[in-house]
Design a binder for these strands. Structure first.
Length: 262
DNA sequence: ACATTGACCTGAGAGC
DNA sequence: TGCTCTCAGGTCAATG
């Protein structure tokens, strides 16, 4: 589930609830969630520390807990955070729980275990080692740069948008939403798109992701003008009345409007 | 360099 | 109620 906007919300959630609290205890309930770090190391390097600052890059979240000591979180498909006081409120699929001095608990939950909890000495190292692209909301990612990155690659536009090596943070759901708003067919070859079309994708990417963050930060549901509300074959496009089609692109279920996305 | 497929996991929901 | 099947918003490795 979690793409960039959701992870941004998790970041704020962690900021609000857990920052500045001393970690009294770290409990690893299922070691399969651990990435490159062994359980004993994770526990040793976080116990007694506190999270002092946060950094999000794409779908990755880093929480600093000392000099060259960062907790790294990736949420996979079903990852989530829960902060609570009553142990009875621990989520069913909690995999790692941080107990704070003040009596609060922060759980990393992940039903399907595709997520990762581990340590890194420096988020920049992590980003480099995993060849992650720029964050799509990074101000440094101007249109010119975006265009250059995309034109270097061939293949359909949708898998490119989802490739974390080109731009990091877009998943299946919002890739569809971005192309829907840009009126571009998901299978369009990126190297054969006109400059104004690539610009539309760029603008749409920024708008969609920013809007999603605002939406997720508030109470709001997805507005009906969005494709995300019409992910069903045969639905009618809220924009042009065309028929919504379902297909598979790059192995992922894809929805698009058969009329205004060419 | 790219597309495709399967693997990793576990549940929710549909259909019978 | 319970069984079986399909699907799920992510990523990686192997294969063509």
């Amino acid at each position: 589930m979690p793409e960039l906007p959701e992870v941004e919300i998790y970041s704020r959630y962690l900021q609000r609830h857990a920052l500045g609290q001393r970690i009294a205890r770290v409990r690893v309930l299922d070691e399969r969630i651990l990435g490159a770090t062994r359980k004993a190391t994770l526990v040793r390097r976080l116990t007694g520390e506190q999270f002092t600052s946060l950094r999000r890059h794409g779908k990755h979240l880093f929480a600093q807990a000392g000099e060259r000591n960062w907790l790294h979180l990736h949420f996979g498909m079903t990852g989530d955070l829960a902060y609570y006081f009553d142990p009875a409120d621990a989520p069913r699929f909690a995999r790692v729980i941080f107990d704070f001095d003040g009596g609060g608990h922060l759980a990393f939950e992940d039903m399907r275990l595709f997520g990762i909890v581990d340590l890194t000495s420096d988020p920049d190292d992590y980003i480099r080692e995993h060849a992650l692209g720029l964050d799509p909301l990074d101000p440094a990612l101007r249109l010119r740069l975006f265009r250059r990155l995309m034109e270097k690659r061939r293949g359909a536009i949708k898998p490119l948008l989802m490739s974390q090596q080109v731009v990091a943070g877009i998943g299946n759901l919002y890739a569809d939403e971005i192309l829907f708003r840009a009126s571009i067919h998901p299978l369009r070859p990126a190297d054969r798109m006109r400059p104004d079309e690539m610009k539309a994708v760029y603008t749409s990417m920024r708008r969609v992701l920013n809007e999603m963050v605002v939406l997720k930060a508030g109470e709001g549901d997805y507005p009906p003008r969005m494709l995300v509300q019409h992910r069903e074959e045969g639905d009618l496009c809220p924009r042009c009345g065309g028929e919504i089609r379902r297909t598979v692109v790059g192995g992922r279920t894809t929805y698009f409007c058969s009329r205004h996305q060419r």
